[in-house]
Simulated scan of single mutants.
Amino acid sequence: MSSALAEALAQADDPEVIQQLLAAEITSDESAESTNDPQSTLSDLYQRYLNRRTDRSPATRAQYKRTIPTFVDFAADHGITHPHGITTTLIDEFADELFDAYDTDATIATYTKNVRAWLKWLHKRNLCDESTYTLLDKQELGLSPRARDEALPESEARQILSKLRTQRRGSELHAILELLWNTGLRIGEVRALDVSDYRPEVADVSIQHRPETGTRIKNGSAEDNHPGDGERLTELKPSVVKALNHYIRHQRHDVTDEYGREPLFTTRRGRPSRSTLRRWVYEATSCRWRENPDGDTCDGSCDARSNICPHSYYPHAIRRGAIVSQLSNGLSRGKAKERFNVSIPVIEKHYDPRSKPERKEDRAEEVRQAWPDI
Rank of each mutant, 00 (worst) to 15 (best):
E30G: 00
S31L: 13
E33Q: 10
P38Y: 03
Q39D: 12
S40P: 03
T41Q: 05
T41V: 13
R48D: 10
L50H: 03
L50W: 04
R52C: 02
R52Q: 06
D55I: 13
P58V: 02
A59V: 08
A62D: 15
Q63H: 12
Q63S: 14
K65M: 08
R66V: 00
I68K: 03
P69S: 04
T70K: 03
D73M: 04
F74V: 01
A75H: 08
A75D: 05
I80D: 04
I80W: 10
H82Q: 13
H84C: 10
G85I: 02
I86A: 01
T87Q: 07
T87A: 04
L90Q: 01
L90A: 04
I91W: 12
F94G: 04
F94V: 04
L98F: 08
D100L: 14
A101L: 12
D103C: 00
T104K: 05
D105T: 08
T107D: 03
A109D: 10
T112Y: 01
K113M: 01
K113S: 08
L119K: 11
R125C: 07
N126T: 08
T132N: 09
Y133L: 06
L135H: 14
D137M: 02
K138S: 12
Q139L: 14
Q139K: 15
L143Q: 04
R146K: 10
R146M: 04
D149P: 00
A151H: 12
